[in-house]
Amino acid sequence: MLLAEQALNGLQYGMMLFLMAAGLTLVFGVMGLINLAHGSLYMLGAFACAWVAAATGSFALGLAASLAAAAAAGVLVEVAVIRRLYARDHLEQVLATFALILVFSEGTRWVFGSFPLYLTLPAALSGAVTLPGGLQYPLFRLAIIGVGAAVAVGLWLLIARTRLGIRIRAGEADREMVAALGVDIARLYTLVFALGAALAGLAGALVGTIQSVQVGMGEPVLILAFVVIVIGGIGSIKGALVAALLVGLTDALGKALLPALFARFMEVSAANGIGAALGSMLIYILMAGVLIWRPQGLYGARG
């Protein structure tokens, strides 16, 4: 029973990571850009949702605001800064987006202060449902799993089935050729960046209901999203989905099971300590393992 609950937690965590990783991997795959400020867009989404939801009392409006705010910030940042970085090397991209994090974090602290905000769940989504087998599980976490799955399907449809998706794939393969065929590549890039930003904002808003909304909340998630896309293979959305679920499940199950496992052959307090330490390192060990086995990631094409 505990196992099933932890597996669901892992699934929910994985779906949230997927929302983050999808945007990162899309931006990297299409534009070749490594964007550290993705976590700031996540934070921005959470703040926008918390602020609008508190002002209007409507969580749905808050969600819409998180999408809009993150996408708008994405467009702004892309046009003002990111656009100049596509042709630069990764070091400069890392540095410039690191600088953007400083600006975003301190700017948010300046506007909203250092105290965390809290999001309250709408009545329709709070409470628990009883799953087959008698397990009680919070409805909202199930909703996050549903949103993640819907985004995965939606992204697949977008990329595989629409004209925009064709352009995105073409832009990934050969930028000059696509531009020569008359596609406005600059606008396409802005659009892709805004799409990734909106997904990050959505992830932030959803997680804001589980955790507190505060400056710096995006950074741990950003690093995990990196782990996810390294495992999945950079540029692959399918890889991001598989790796996000793998990371989510490994993390949740590892933290739940390792202390119990160690307790079988050592005293409980020591087992808890070592289990917790190892549990928090487990996903990085998983990543190291994948890299030894397949340095380009599970679904990655390039090394």
Binding site: F28, I234, L291, Q296
Partner: peptide, 13 residues
Amino acid sequence: RTSGVYFIMVTLA
């Protein structure tokens, strides 16, 4: 074992 962006992210991780 990796290079480019992978290297950046792996060292970070």
